[in-house]
């Protein structure tokens, strides 16, 4: 390739730098998460990373692309970490590997590799696995019941029987079941959640600590200029708005906005998943629309849908809309009027 003439400006952000920063931003969340659940989280991360690098290498080889260069961009690693953090920590090993297979092979490379994938690979993994194995994907460990490391490993790798008593409904499940049955034994949703609390005060069972560290990681990404403010801002405000609306309408049936923002995958989704530069929107206004849509859909799916959390499906639905949104939100070209005519 001939060198273009000067001046040369070097872009400070390379793919591998961005991906390394994302990993760094996920780190505090991982620490808190594994402190609450146990080292199984770390085992899942290692397992997912190894599987992701393996599938990535195989696919690059099959597509006759330079393996070393593309493995070194860390994008497979970020996908693997997001899968490990969104799957239940005690899932059997083959569930995680199946998820990674769907993310790397189907969602990423069959569509043309990094930069070409219309859907967020980690969320495809989640969606495929929760549709294929709904029971296993809803087995979240009861918190405060931390098993020794060896036993957690034995459960993941299938040497020990999966004990039903170890798992429990997440706070989101609890309120959804209450909403479905329409009869709250504990009086109302707030009291019900309080009765479930072990560590937390407002989002139940330690989830709030994990999500708060994700929030910190997200703030770090914002400060480093890896993501723009549009998607997280739109996601969080729209989710807060719709949950506040429902909560004000009937505080006995719907839980408050704070609970929704700090439970499940809301913060992880707002800062790490919906901000994916490839499958999301590219224009500033488009990103706002993307965030608002994802936030509202996530709330509706997690409260009224069948699945435990709605982030994955909300992000995937908005991924489908992203090209259309981009098409209609193109910023005005400098020197032209908004309708495209010359001024």
């Amino acid at each position: 390739m001939p060198t273009p003439s000067s001046p040369h400006l070097r872009e400070a952000n390379s793919i591998s730098r961005i991906m390394r920063l994302v990993c760094a931003a996920l780190f505090p969340g991982i620490v808190v998460y594994s402190a609450l659940i146990g080292p199984a989280v770390l085992a899942q991360i290692v397992l997912a990373s190894v599987a992701a690098l393996f599938f990535e290498a195989v696919m690059l080889k099959l597509r006759a692309m330079p393996i070393r260069r593309f493995l070194g961009d860390y994008s497979a690693l970020v996908t693997a970490w997001l899968i490990a953090l969104t799957f239940p920590p005690l899932s059997p090993w083959w569930l995680t590997v199946t998820g990674v297979f769907f993310a790397i092979v189907v969602a990423k490379h069959l569509y043309g590799g990094l930069g070409q994938n219309p859907f967020n690979p980690a969320m495809i993994a989640f969606a495929a696995c929760i549709i294929a194995f709904p029971a296993l994907m809803s087995e979240w460990p009861a918190q405060g019941l931390m098993l020794p490391f060896e036993q957690q490993l034995e459960i993941i790798f299938g040497f020990a029987p999966r004990i039903d008593a170890l798992t429990a409904a997440t706070p989101l499940d609890v309120i959804k079941t209450a909403l479905k049955n329409n009869a709250l034994r504990a009086g109302n949703i707030q009291e019900l959640l309080m009765s479930q609390n072990l560590y937390g005060t407002f989002a139940g069972r330690g989830w709030e600590w994990v999500t708060m560290t994700y929030l910190c990681g997200g703030a770090f990404l914002l400060a480093m200029g890896v993501i723009t403010w549009h998607v997280p801002f739109a996601f969080i405000t729209s989710m807060a708005a719709i949950s506040a609306l429902c909560w004000l309408f009937d505080p006995g049936r719907f839980s408050d906005p704070l609970f929704h923002l700090f439970s499940g995958g809301a913060m992880l989704g707002a800062f790490f998943i919906a901000t994916d530069p490839v499958s999301g929107c590219a224009t500033p206004r488009g990103r706002l629309i993307f965030g608002v849509g994802a936030g509202i859909l996530a709330y509706l799916i997690r409260v009224f849908g069948v699945f435990p959390d709605g982030i994955a499906f909300a992000v995937l639905i908005m991924n489908i809309c992203a090209p259309l949104i981009d098409r209609y939100t193109q910023p005005t070209v400098f020197g032209r009027r908004a309708n495209g005519r010359r001024s």
Partner: peptide
């Protein structure tokens, strides 16, 4: 074999 339900569903 746990059964890969996705294959039996429309997707």
């Amino acid at each position: 074999y746990p059964g890969f339900l996705l294959a039996a569903l429309p997707p």
